[in-house]
Design a binder for these strands. Structure first.
Length: 588
RNA sequence: CGGGGUGUAGCGCAGUUUGGUAGCGCAUUGCGUUUGGGACGCAAGGGCCGCAGGUUCAAAUCCUGUCACCCCGACCA
């Protein structure tokens, strides 16, 4: 690549709409350009980087025997109608119509297409297992795209799917992908963690995420320094205590608690009106019953009450993950009017439960085990019930993981204190099970001639996101600093001469060097621009971020060129005659 | 969807309070000087001031409406 003709324009100033370093630098260094919110053009340098990331992913997928294919991005409605996702996916899908008013969508993910492709071509257990993948442009109409290509509405994703006859096969396919992902993310040079995750909108069971660790990441996860447990907050399982015998506990009793609609006012009142002998009342002694409205994909609405210890709040992300595909809406004043048994601020278990008169579903935090005693609402304004014992005085319809998770909470695996950190989701693997195979009727004949529903796994890597994420983790004040395996070029040669007439030796040496390195198989970005001052060329080379910069200029008088390491800033001089050899040694 | 903000040249911005012929820096073009850390001088090209309506002799500026975009939150591989 010759800079004199490369389609490139570097910017001295940051674009006004870029906040995060990766976005600022990728635009300034001429890798990408914004076209529309969350939609970017890959310019020549950026495309080189994207292709290199793709290639690493491709090699590792091929290595586990997965086969690449390519589906259209433009898809008909019917398969998504059949799987239920035409509605479940909601407003995040880009939808469009053709001239005959038929519905289409731009694929947000391709489970249906893979499932149908296998159904179309395979019908025997002998055909399984099979693993297929594509590297595709995906579309999601994000409510708020942000951070450049880190979270776009159009993005490149590798998605693959495994098809097995049974769960044992799925476990094996899952493990293969897991191993491949470790290789991919190692090669991409990420600092990452593998965390337990929710299967999310795709449905399914076992699931793990690969998160690039980043302080400004969008995903929060917890980890245990003691046993290595790590999980996305959405997927954290609360360490539930053992049930407590409650034969000797005092009976429950309703008390006057005027003007105590909040946990804070209630605790203050308890401590003045009903002081405990052993210690003061605390928020954690109360059972907070939070009511929300669930909106199901078919549009139906139903209230849900969640009982959690009063010192905690409902974490909306965790709750949302639990109730998916339903979405959580606020419980409005009008809803209270429609459900008169719910007294705002004084809701108690007595009127709750699917078996109760109200029929309102009631789920409690896993900490609310049998034998625990609580202060909670008595379903009358200004009244609470004390010593209400779970298992004796009330029984919920089940438990729900909706309370917030905090640093210091017990690790569900070993009991040690959990710590919290943030990351960016780069990969997600999960066991889909039979959801799509059933919805789309993907079956094969087994060895006994019986129809068996195929078991699927689904695995994704955010390819374009990886480019942003690598940039995010590899830059300094001057610009980008690409890892060698990702860089758009192996070497950036800077010729600092005035022009070919006045400094023929500089340009001739640089060109000879370029040809020599290219002949040796390297890709070279050669700054052959004439009448451009050295300062500009140095700044551009630092901004662009090729890991090895070779300067051909002034020092030629002494018969040497300079080799500069972009990351460390170290530079050394080598004789022109040894230059190709020395640079090859540097790069390998 | 809630809160905050911004739309003026390819990019970054001033001008809007107080209406009077569209500005600055970078980038681009030409000439000259300069060439190891984003050089300098002179000259030049480039604008539907987001859009629509209104007020006015006169609107980037005032009024009404509308659209778009950015940031925080909500939501989301």
């Amino acid at each position: 690549m010759r800079m004199s003709s490369l389609f490139l324009r570097t910017l001295r100033e940051n674009p006004a709409d870029a906040e995060v370093p990766s976005h600022q630098l990728l635009v300034r260094a001429g890798y990408i350009r914004r076209v529309s919110p969350g939609i970017y053009t890959w310019l020549p340098l950026g495309l080189k980087v994207l292709k290199r990331v793709e290639q690493i992913v491709r090699e590792e997928m091929d290595a586990i025997g997965s086969q690449e294919l390519l589906f259209p991005a433009l898809l008909p409605r019917e398969p998504y109608e059949a799987s239920g996702r035409w509605t479940e996916y909601g407003p995040n899908v880009f939808r469009l119509k053709d001239r005959k008013e038929n519905d289409y969508l731009l694929g947000p993910t391709h489970e249906e297409m893979f499932t149908l492709a296998v159904k179309d071509m395979y019908s025997s257990y002998k055909d399984l297992p099979v693993s297929l993948y594509q590297i595709q442009i995906k579309y999601r109409d994000e409510a708020r795209p942000r951070a450049g290509i880190l979270r776009g509405r159009e993005f490149v994703m590798k998605d693959s799917y495994s098809f097995d006859l049974d769960e044992a096969g799925l476990d094996k396919s899952y493990q293969q992908h897991r191993d491949a992902y470790i290789k991919i993310f190692d090669r991409l040079g990420f600092h990452y963690v593998i965390v337990q995750a929710m299967a999310g909108a795709m449905g399914g069971s076992k699931s793990e995420e690969f998160l690039a660790t980043a302080e400004n990441g969008e995903d929060t996860y917890v980890r245990c320094a003691n046993c290595g447990y790590a999980a996305n907050v959405e997927a954290v399982q609360v360490a539930a205590p053992d049930p407590i015998p409650y034969a000797d506990l005092p009976a429950s009793h309703v008390e006057d608690t005027p003007d105590t609609p909040t946990i804070e006012t209630l605790v203050t009142h308890l401590n003045s009106a009903f002081p405990r002998e052993d210690r003061a009342w605390a928020a954690g002694d109360t059972l907070k019953n939070v009511v929300v409205m669930l909106v199901h994909p078919d549009g139906s609405r139903a209230p849900l009450v969640i009982g959690i210890p009063g010192d905690r709040d409902v974490d909306e992300k965790r709750l949302g993950a639990q109730v998916e595909p339903a979405v959580v809406a606020a419980f409005e004043e009008a809803d209270f009017a429609a459900y008169p048994s719910l007294k705002k601020g004084y809701i108690g278990p007595e009127v709750l439960g699917e078996a109760s008169e109200s029929g309102i579903r009631y789920l409690v935090d896993p900490r609310v085990v049998d034998g625990t005693a609580w202060v909670t609402g008595a379903n009358r304004p200004g009244h609470h019930v004390l010593d209400l014992v779970a298992g004796r005085d009330f029984t919920a319809d089940g438990t729900i993981e909706a309370a917030d998770v905090r640093p210091g909470d017990a690790c569900p695996s070993c009991g040690h204190a959990l710590e919290s950190a943030r990351g960016i989701e780069m990969g997600h693997i999960f066991q889909l099970g039979r959801k799509y195979a059933e919805a789309l009727d993907l079956k094969v004949l087994d060895e006994h001639g019986k129809q068996r529903t195929v078991v699927m796994g689904s695995y994704g890597v955010g390819v374009s996101r990886a480019v942003a994420c690598i940039a995010e983790g590899n830059h300094d004040d001057l610009g980008l600093v690409w890892p060698r395996d990702i860089s758009p070029a192996d070497v950036h040669i800077v010729a600092t001469g005035k022009d070919r007439v006045r400094d023929p030796e500089v340009f001739e040496t640089a060109e000879r060097l370029t040809r020599g390195l290219e002949a040796a198989g390297l890709t070279v970005l050669y700054d052959d621009r004439e009448k451009v001052s050295p300062g500009v060329k140095f700044k551009d080379s630092e901004l662009i971020g090729v890991p090895t910069i070779v300067v051909v200029g002034k020092s030629l008088e002494n018969g040497v060129i300079e080799i500069k390491d972009r990351r460390s800033g170290d530079r050394r001089e080598v004789p022109v005659a040894d230059a190709v050899t020395e640079i090859l040694a540097e790069v390998n």
